[in-house]
Nucleic acid binder design. Structure first.
Ligand SMILES: [Mn+2]
Ligand SMILES: [Mn+2]
Ligand SMILES: [Zn+2]
Ligand SMILES: [Zn+2]
Lengths: 138, 138
DNA sequence: CAGTAATTGCACTTCCATTGCATTGATTTT
DNA sequence: AAAATCAATGCAATGGAAGTGCAATTACTG
């Protein structure tokens, strides 16, 4: 079990107070978060810093970006050992039309999608919309 | 075979010169277009008019909106008899990482996606990214 | 033709994402 | 330890796309 410090260092990210705080924030959230969510959680910090921190995490494959169709980019921590860039690794995302929350369904890999001749599939984005478990009352 | 005028009227959309032009523009394009694309094609017309025309078409199920992950909304004409609002009718979209064009693969319906217990699927957005037939050289 | 209703154009706004630059802070070198 | 160097942070500003209020114009109705 490695500490957050060790994880960041292993990815060549300098350890700073801000980065540790943001990492912990993302880690304890079970849902994908927007930049505004992070802003609200760290009101003393500057938006730009939060933005660049998340972008750094994203670049180093610590978080992945989620486009759930709301028009607002969301972010979530990658699974341990996740290779976001490889198609085989991609899980699907669920966006709740009721509570507006988006979750990673990391257990649910995206099925193989057939494309017509001449097309080369490199990557798939799959978002299911509906009612989440908390909102469906079950 | 019905004319464009008849189609618009059948959807309770008043026929105007602008609407006919935009419809024809969308019809002859084989790819999904952004509002900017339309703007560039009709420089004399006002952005707002183009915007509201497309929104009218969308509302009346003449065009459907496509979120291909580029962050810019795209639009494409619906197929004849397409019921965009029904999940069963949904086709997948392909976005080319090379030429940045997005096409409807209307023949390729989205497979049934399983979601965990408690989750209710109402809608699915599936975008495949890669290299399109024109760019793959075959 | 007059009256009414919808469409169009212009101006303005909002929201999110992104960048330039100065400042602060941390790390390395002498 | 001080100086030099490089990265991280904060502040201000920008850009792009989406959306709205209202007045002017155009199309439809009787
Ligand atoms: Mn995810
Ligand atoms: Mn389509
Ligand atoms: Zn919910
Ligand atoms: Zn292409």
């Amino acid at each position: 079990m490695q500490t957050i410090e060790e994880l960041l260092e292993s990815k060549n990210i300098r350890v700073t107070a801000m980065r540790l705080l943001i990492y912990k924030f993302l880690a304890e959230k079970q849902i994908a978060v927007t930049l505004s969510d992070i802003e609200n959680a760290f009101e003393k910090a500057d938006r730009t810093t939060l933005y660049r921190t998340v972008k750094t995490f994203e670049e180093k494959d610590i978080v992945h970006q989620i486009d759930d169709g709301t028009g607002i980019t969301k972010y979530a921590l990658c699974e341990k050992g996740c290779n976001c860039e490889l198609e085989t690794d991609l899980h699907l995302h669920f966006h709740c039309n009721n509570c507006n929350e988006t979750v990673c369904l990391t257990e649910h890999k995206i099925p193989q999608i057939k494309v017509p001749d001449g097309f080369v599939s490199e990557n798939v984005n799959l978002v299911v919309k509906g009612i989440c478990d908390k909102c469906s009352g079950q």
